[in-house]
Amino acid sequence: MICDVNVLWPQEDYGSSVTASQLSELKNRLAVLEELGYTHVALNFRIRQGQRLPAQVNPIDLSSFSEFKDRLKLFTRVTLIVEDASQMQTVAKLQNAFDLVAVEPRTEKALTSCIVNMEVDLISLDMANRLPCYLKHKTICSATEKGVYFEIKYSDLVDTSSSTRATAISNIKQLFRASRLRGLVCSSGAKSAKSLRNYSDVANMLVLFGLDHNRSQQIFKDWPLKALLAGRLRIKSYKQVVAISGDENLIDNSLEGKNKQDATPYRQPKRRKEDKPSTT
């Protein structure tokens, strides 16, 4: 169960469409990920704040990835780039359409209000540039206690010039210090197949930067899986408390259509009698 929760979806915004060559490049990327041992992959759609949402909120159609049906578990993720902390209404609409909801705060105010007010699974700071503010232990740890995970993208380390790499390393070290090495998720964030790496090699690199050896494995396995589970629980459970059947079925999304609400078990009373209920 090795996760990569950030594989960039080629679309920039709702207006543009995905060409066939972009799609085949993306599938090549997924095949390389499979070769490197990843099992759970989330396709990441990035949007800027203030964009008008169309009726079909989720542009990613997982049914076009039928080649990977038995090979990889695919999920959808949205990353909202937040610059103005006062306009946060859009998140509620996104929550029901995507498996994972992430935010990328660009200012200090946005970061604090994301932690305090918003129901998200991941906070992804832009490591390639200077951080918006000094990361305080109190702020970061209050997010970790809420169950929000912070994301590190290793493409900032591998596929860049040496000056951005230096910035990225110093930012990662800041995050390590502020978070006390808890609640971190490492993902690729790769734009092309060449900047993907083996997960244990990246873990080894993070150990050199100050992560401890034990947690270097969790950063790819347990923590992203927990974030994924939290995101799935939001759409598949009743008030995030009760869900039908165990963790495995929650993670499994093979039966779902594009509209995730269709597959919510508590809205289909007929199916409930067949399955044994259990609390999660």
Binding site: L36, R197, N198, D201, N204, M205
Partner: peptide, 24 residues
């Protein structure tokens, strides 16, 4: 060991071809 594996991870190209070096 760790430094050498990190160096292998950082290698992007060999003779102009893109490569991923995986330490197994």
């Amino acid at each position: 060991v760790r430094y050498i594996i990190a160096a292998l991870t950082f290698i992007r190209q060999l003779r102009g071809q893109d490569v991923i070096i995986k330490c197994s």
